[in-house]
Design a protein around this nucleic acid. Structure first.
Lengths: 152, 152
DNA sequence: TAAGATTGAGGGCTCAATCTTC
DNA sequence: GAAGATTGAGCCCTCAATCTTA
């Protein structure tokens, strides 16, 4: 492809495969998750750290750090999820600038229902198709790519 | 993470690394592309097959097949790009149901400017950090994952 | 009926203001 | 001024409904 002048055929194929696998795999997980538990991928991601916290409540700042999301992305997502009845928002007692995000009953119930199916799906669509050696290689590669990107 | 009960620590780490690498890498490419050539990733993707076609014109059906995009996604993208002056739309002479998508001068100029920098970026952020053996492993893995997903 | 395409609604993401509180 | 958070605009994507032509 003209997009890849400067990449040889093998590299082009690997790069296209990476892009396609990324889209198909995450898309399949998203659809499956949505169908079985009614949760989008973003909703699921937000509920996980909250369900692991002491009492189902975290400062928005902590939640954002756990997810590695910026403030804006989190604020938009929390707003939508509050409207859906999965979360509550409140002010932070210790620092009036901060906000607290908490699970509702519906939110806790949703994540507890969704988690086992989601994990099974990741195993079935990803790990079941890979050898131990391939998993090791992928782990090393992703770590290296992330380290290089962090240095930029 | 509670998200990964049923995955061991090593698997969880690899999966998180996959998700993070995906987001960081594609995000970095997107931002770089946008900064240097003013094209989004989606716009770039659409322009590539058109720039490789005979006269810069393809049936929407062909373009969608080349990108592996569904009709709706392509129609929305073409509409935005037509508004930006990168593409033209017309009716298909051979089949009145079809539509023809063509490059404008601005579109051709944009892709020709963007392509070398984009390829260099993919090389710098991805292939430069991988050994030959790792590239082979990744190629095989992505092919296998895609084949498995296609069978579902 | 099926194929090609378009549209509107709605979730999701990023960027650039903005507001409040430290 | 800096930190925590929110908001609005704009692009991207998917889904379902619709319209036209084959």
């Amino acid at each position: 492809m003209a997009a890849h002048r400067g990449l040889d055929d093998r590299e082009t194929h690997v790069w296209q495969g990476y892009l396609a696998a990324q889209r198909e795999l995450l898309g399949a997980l998203e659809r499956q998750n949505l169908r079985e538990s009614g949760l989008s991928g973003a909703e699921y991601a937000v509920l996980v750290p909250l369900s692991e916290s002491e009492d189902g409540v975290l400062r928005a700042r902590e939640l954002g750090a756990a997810l590695d999301w910026d403030r804006s992305r989190l604020a938009h997502q929390v707003r939508r999820m509050e409207k859906r009845g999965l979360l509550t928002r409140g002010v932070c007692a210790a620092d009036a600038r901060g906000s607290m995000v908490g699970l509702t009953e519906a939110g806790r119930s949703a994540i507890e229902t969704a988690a086992p199916a989601h994990v099974a799906q990741v195993r079935r669509c990803f790990f079941d198709h890979l050898s131990d050696a391939e998993v090791d290689t992928l782990g090393a590669v992703f770590d290296r790519l992330l380290a290089a990107l962090a240095e930029e």
